[in-house]
């Protein structure tokens, strides 16, 4: 366990170093963060047009988190490109731990973006967040982020074998969450079977918790839904572990893990 944590720590440190070599806080703010905030504003404006600005604003402010969390899907190609995938497989550590560590920075980036959206945008659209419950918003966002991240890692484990499909996989993964998990319309808008599927996706329960929190709903609802969200995340984590083992087994069998790039 301590070994695993150390691997997680060092791959997170490495990804932080790579991230900061690529972005400065200025470029991150003006290219990435602003792109996410504008997306939230776009949907919030639609909300204003139909008279439910708070519903769409809250939903989309949480949803942008999913984009960052799902970026973990793209990391696979990076390992292949830098020729480190074979070395990673040949190292005596759990591959999923390494991979999760390397994407952790995007999870952090997503949490920061989402929290920023909650800080900056509600006043602009005249939406009121209850005080002091609003202090729990970052906690809920982190819970949603974690489960989205595990979901992304699971998709990543399947995409590792098909690097050409990575962008497609990324977009479909987060758009599925954005469309069906209660971001823009409540989940009971959808047919029963969709709703059943959606309850196994990340974000659904986390968003329910968030809306309950903001609407001054019962604390029990908030807690139950957060726990459910984390359970969903754990399930996706288990699936990701299976997926990674399967990917490595397949790569070893068919020889698709190359020395070099």
């Amino acid at each position: 366990m301590r070994d695993q944590l150390r691997v997680l720590k060092h791959s997170a440190i490495a990804s932080w170093a790579e991230f900061t070599a690529f972005y400065t806080w200025k470029t991150w703010t003006f290219t990435w963060l602003s792109r996410l905030l504008i997306q939230v504003c776009f949907y919030a404006l639609i909300g204003r047009m139909i008279g439910s600005v708070d519903y769409l604003l809250v939903g989309n402010a949480v949803a942008i988190m999913a984009i960052d969390a799902c970026v973990v899907i793209l990391l696979a190609i990076g390992e292949r490109r830098s020729g480190t995938l074979s070395l990673m497989v040949a190292a005596p550590s759990t591959h999923l731990t390494i991979y999760l560590g390397r994407g952790l920075i995007h999870l952090v980036s997503g949490v920061v973006a989402s929290v920023t959206a909650f800080l900056v945008l509600p006043p602009l659209f005249g939406v009121h967040l209850p005080w002091p419950q609003a202090l729990l918003v970052p906690v809920l966002i982190t819970a949603v982020g974690l489960s989205c991240y595990c979901y992304g890692a699971c998709v990543a484990s399947f995409v590792l074998g098909f690097p050409a499909a990575r962008w497609l996989a990324l977009n479909i993964s987060y758009l599925t969450l954005m469309t069906f998990c209660g971001v823009n319309v409540p989940t009971d808008f959808w047919p029963d079977w969709v709703r059943r599927v959606v309850s196994f996706l990340p974000m659904t329960h986390g968003l329910t918790a968030m809306r309950a929190l903001i609407a001054n709903g019962p604390a029990s609802t908030v807690v139950t839904q957060v726990v459910l969200e984390l359970l969903v995340g754990a399930a996706w984590f288990a699936l990701a572990a299976v997926g990674f083992n399967r990917m490595v087994r397949r790569g070893r069998r068919d020889g698709s893990i190359e020395f070099g790039a």
Binding site: A14, A17, E18, A21, F22, S82, G83, G260, A261
Partner: peptide, 14 residues
């Protein structure tokens, strides 16, 4: 494991 060429390193790290 050591292979030739420039791959197998993270270029954005020290």
């Amino acid at each position: 494991i050591v292979f030739g060429g420039e791959h197998g390193l993270y270029w954005k790290l020290s």
